[in-house]
Nucleic acid binder design. Structure first.
Lengths: 248, 248
DNA sequence: CGAAGGCTTGATAGACCTCAAACACAGTGG
DNA sequence: CCACTGTGTTTGAGGTCTATCAAGCCTTCG
């Protein structure tokens, strides 16, 4: 039994934060000391909803989550996908009312951390506070990029860009090897993330496959030509602000 | 000569922060103590650019700024507009490299504050740190809403939504009275913010005018039917997280 | 008064959507 | 073990929203 299974949630968080900031031993210990309650969620379960006033944040330990809103005529728009190591509602630490929903996209294991503990930790360890602040700023940077993606890129590039982003994010936390990772999203969900219809997503994915950029086996996605995919998606990973960038 | 002209930049910042958080007298004094260098910029001047590593943040004192990126084929996409009181590149406090550009949209007066001074102030006054963090989180909330706007709303609603947002933001800092405010954006800039062509923006604006929702006199925009505009834009100001909301 | 930038208009084209149905596959139950 | 169901993928056809191209007009400003 390795460290991963013993303190999986803490290690996930530490690994994630180390991918975007330098942590001191003291800060690492502080993270280990955080109280976390692990709970599992089935697919498509809302974790927090618009209007909620959470008193804790949650960390994705295993699985996949997404934040979304509905537009007036009922269409869903995802604003972000969250992978293991992410704290999707960290913003609730300083914004009391949720302005969006967050739900699971696959069966997921989540670790809940009380706001009080996080506030205390940030008060005691300014470096940790900076790392968490930085994490929310990177989320914002990703939102900005998504605005560009949805606003200005045609479907083919949009799709390529999203896949690049997921690949790099997953690689940073050790969840992509050999250009292969689990992509448990349906084409409808991909469409709701890119402002495209399911039908059009399907045709776009087929095009990417036909051009030899990607391949898929069930829920597994294989990037066959990273250079071409990057180029197609005009992908520049700067906005992810990774410190130890392994993919590029 | 009133307080506004004497310490215009400090007052702008205090007023802005008070619209999103409660400040103690001590924190207000700390803001007054911040070193600020005021500089004026002409229209369409980049203040910071992608790749820059700023050592100071800037506050919009007068004028209008916007953050943008270019997509691969040269199309511009605005990701945010900044009005007096905003600190557009506050994120540079914890993200060293700029991942986007920020430029003026009209002749503007900006106040530059060294990172060092802000770091020192946040270290000394946790309440101030929380207010600034909160400010960046609200920016992120606005980005999220823009993703929905660009991704899922048709042009007419998209336009209405953007106007509602600007109206509420400007009202919060005292720059809208009688449903009237200065909108110094060209239709091309509006298009670049909404992912629409200039031509289509023009036709959409005409529609809004024809339906009696808005009226314009030069650069002045008059909201003629706030209820209808809100409805058309599916506008719910929750995401702006204003504490003293006067418009709604 | 000419130039430049912004606004407006018309016509055409294209990217993407909607509707509708067939197909594939995994899980369920009799 | 095999229909049965549900979810996700795929395909086809037609429609629409929005882009592009091109030009005229208006205002501002030197």
């Amino acid at each position: 039994m390795d460290e991963t299974s013993l303190h999986q949630e803490r290690n996930r968080l530490i690994r994630k934060l180390e991918s975007i900031a330098d942590l001191s031993d003291e800060e690492r210990r502080a993270i280990f000391g955080l109280p976390m309650t692990v709970r599992t969620f089935a697919t498509d379960k809302d974790i927090v909803r618009e209007g909620d006033r959470p008193s804790e944040c949650f960390l994705v330990v295993e699985g996949f989550a997404g934040s979304y809103k509905h537009s007036g005529d009922g269409k869903r728009q995802f604003m972000s996908f969250y992978t293991p190591g992410d704290i999707p509602d960290l913003q609730s630490l300083h914004l009391d009312v949720m302005d969006h929903n967050i739900s699971t996209l696959v069966p997921s294991k989540l670790a809940f951390i009380p706001h009080a503990a996080l506030h205390e930790a940030t008060r005691r360890y300014p470096g940790l506070a900076a790392a968490l602040w930085r994490d929310t700023l990177i989320d914002a940077a990703i939102f900005r990029e998504w605005i560009v993606n949805v606003g200005r890129r045609p479907a083919y590039a949009r799709m390529a860009h999203l896949l690049c982003e997921l690949a790099v994010k997953l690689k940073a936390v050790g969840l992509m090897a050999d250009w292969t990772f689990e992509l448990p999203l349906t084409q409808t969900e991909l469409g709701d993330a890119m402002g495209l219809s399911t039908v059009h997503v399907n045709r776009t994915v087929q095009e990417l496959r036909a051009h030899g950029l990607i391949r898929s086996e069930g829920r597994t996605l294989i990037i066959e030509d990273w250079g071409a995919l990057k180029k197609a998606g005009e992908f520049d990973p700067t906005y992810l602000h990774l410190t130890n960038r392994r993919a590029a």
